[in-house]
Write a protein that binds this DNA or RNA. Structure first.
Lengths: 207, 207
DNA sequence: GCAAAAGTGTTGTGTCTACACCCATGT
DNA sequence: ACATGGGTGTAGACACAACACTTTTGC
């Protein structure tokens, strides 16, 4: 009876490897009077995660009440475990789908790519990460311009030497921040830019 | 000991009244083997809500593990309870702030306004709702154009007669859908529009 | 006629996609 | 020289804010 309302914390960790989005899922029972984050750190190695955020709480098919977190690991990170490609079906399919959807959305309007990319990279390398995470093609040209214009990317020193087949050496970039930032907050309905950002009037319904 | 991991479901319900955003909070203990939604329906009158979505799970200041839901009620809806303006401090301040932030964000890129507005309304009336919910001024002109262009609003039959002070009669509008839809999904990094929406290539890391 | 409220026309700005073109390297 | 991969220039599409202007009513 004591555990009939037991709670589990699930970590759904994503990374990109060899052009594929991979997932690692771990869970841990919430102890009495324990906070959620400590339980998460028992479920997965949180120190290896470049970004963590809560996903959702749901009752799993086996009846367990679980709070899921999304974790992201850089492409050059090392986190041991039973990684599998997200395209392959496995346990916790709905949680993995939710994690993927969340990542996909946030890649568009935040700088969350920092948590998937190595500390320094070329635009081509970053493009492959975005392609794998978004599931559709991405233009390297436009990716660079969008992220630089938004101030998300900045140049790093040095270049990457070309491979045996030649080609111009690639410039190196890094993410300007390693904390989540919303880069496109007011895509629409942004507040007025006028001389004084007007406050809402104490308006009343007409009549 | 049996309730040390007890779980509470909290409903944070928002509505706009007289130009002010108001909140009503209710909670219910999750019963053994109960799903989350039934518990929510004991916390608040879900049948009065035009939209519901899960907010977050956290441990409240009193140590209770709680999953919060955001509920929205139309301006002409009737839901009894201890409503208070969101600007006035009260219990569950952080959950209310999270609800407000979620509503504010979704007003920009979804049609969620349908859940705050009456079934038929003028642009002026809708503008007051947006002003109260967003906390900043909104241009009636641009609000109409944005929402009509996106296909979120459509004209309803008839007009609203002007008040005693005169003025042109206002056209009536309604929301085209009463279910949540994302209206601006690919604000950036949208997939190619080319002849064939190209699939991601089986790309490998360079080198 | 005049004030008030609603709605439309139009201009300018910023962000994005697409694509042509140039740059730097290996063979 | 030429292929290859990287990067820039630039044009066009689109959505938005801002504001002038027109429409329709009450008094």
């Amino acid at each position: 009876m004591a555990d009939s309302t037991s709670h589990t914390v699930v970590g759904v960790v994503l990374r990109v490897r060899e052009g594929h989005l991979e997932v690692l899922v771990g869970g841990a029972r919430l102890r009495q009077h324990e906070q959620l984050e400590p339980a998460l750190s028992r479920a997965v190695d949180v120190s290896a995660l470049a970004h963590v955020e809560q996903l959702e709480t749901r009752i799993l098919p086996d009846g367990v009440l679980a709070t899921a977190y999304l974790g992201l690991v850089p492409a050059d990170g090392t986190l041991a475990g039973a990684w599998r490609e997200v395209t392959k079906v496995g346990e916790h399919g709905e949680l993995v789908a939710a994690a993927q959807a969340r990542l996909r959305a946030k890649l568009s309007y935040t700088n969350v790519g920092f948590a998937l990319a190595p500390s320094v990279f070329t635009i081509s390398e970053l493009r492959e990460i975005y392609v794998a995470a978004l599931g559709h093609d991405v233009s390297a040209t436009n990716l660079q311009r969008v992220l630089v214009r938004r101030g998300v990317l900045e140049r790093a020193d040095g270049q990457r030497a070309p491979g045996r087949t030649g080609g111009r050496p690639a410039a190196l970039f890094r993410f300007a921040s390693d904390r989540l930032e919303v880069t496109d907050e007011f895509a629409a309905l942004r507040p007025p830019t006028g001389p004084e950002s007007r406050r809402p009037r104490g308006s009343r319904a007409s009549g």
